[in-house]
């Protein structure tokens, strides 16, 4: 197994505390007021916290995730909403730390977690290419070298000098994707962003992703709800449910399993109504 450019995930878990007691907006003034009005309650709460007796509602978004992904693989991730796919990508990017376990990434990571992040609405497309490229980790020289390729791939030559606040969501995706794909990262993480593109652009992206993975040997992790795209692009797929990995293997197998699972429920329901 080629160690270079692979992703190794060891026993990752991610826990969220559902802080229902404090509500969404915590104000410092309220905290101080509570200390003065109910000093005993505050002391009890603090002591409980220290001894760890506090009643917390915990939610494990991910638990016991173990994965090894080889260099040059295109791996799809599918699963129901709330299965933890985006959380996994966020942990891989480094935006949020895992509660337990560790992740080892060999190589530079670029991620597309949302369309047009890092785009400044007042800047033109041209200026945003620089902005986005730098945020994703390219040097200015690199961007200048790739500039023409990026504009060509995005296919929005006429509008490259208008501020991006006037772009449609499709144009956003084209530009964002174009910058990320031309970045030459070793590992590319994509989270459901192709939903907005049109058929022609989706095809262009898929072709480019295939080329990037096969010819240049980069690893791609692709989260999507679109079964067709996963079938076309990914040789291996991961099926996730409720924060755990159900299956990791051949795309055909995993997709059949996924569809069977969902159809089972469907058929049972229709039987009941009859």
């Amino acid at each position: 197994m080629n160690i270079e450019n692979s992703i190794i995930i060891k026993n990752i878990g991610k826990k969220y505390n559902i802080a229902y007691q404090l509500g969404g907006y915590v104000a410092l003034r309220e905290v101080f007021a509570n200390i003065f009005l109910n000093p005993f309650k505050f002391v009890k709460y603090k002591v409980k916290k220290i001894i760890n007796l506090e009643t917390k509602e915990e939610f494990w978004a991910l638990r016991n995730i173990n994965l090894e992904i080889n260099k040059g693989d295109i791996v799809g991730i599918i699963g129901a909403s709330g299965a933890g796919k985006s959380t996994l990508l966020k942990i891989l990017t480094g935006i949020t730390p895992p509660t337990e376990g560790e992740v080892i990434l060999h190589g530079k990571v670029a991620s597309l977690l949302e369309v047009g992040t890092g785009f400044h609405p007042e800047f033109t497309g041209r200026e945003n290419i620089f902005l986005n490229g730098v945020i994703l980790g390219m040097t200015k020289k690199e961007i200048i070298n790739k500039f023409d390729k990026i504009i060509e791939f995005a296919g929005i030559d006429k509008f490259i000098d208008t501020p991006v606040k006037y772009y449609s969501s499709g144009m956003y995706v084209r530009l964002a994707f174009s910058v990320a794909v031309n970045m030459e990262p070793d590992i590319l993480l994509i989270d459901e962003v192709l939903a907005v593109g049109d058929v022609e652009f989706k095809k262009k992206c898929l072709d480019k992703l295939e080329e990037v993975a096969k010819k240049e040997g980069r690893t791609i992790l692709f989260v999507s709800h679109n079964i067709e795209i996963i079938q076309k692009l990914c040789k291996k797929t991961i099926l996730m449910k409720s924060g755990k990995i159900l299956l990791y293997g051949n795309t055909e197998e995993v997709i059949n399993h996924y569809l069977e699972q969902n159809n089972e429920g469907f058929i049972n329901d229709t039987n009941k109504t009859q």
Binding site: T93, G94, I95, V109, S111, L113, E114, T117, G118, I135, L136
Partner: peptide, 9 residues
């Protein structure tokens, strides 16, 4: 908050 939650820097 937008770029903090979506991009690593």
């Amino acid at each position: 908050r937008g770029i903090i939650t979506k991009i690593y820097f």
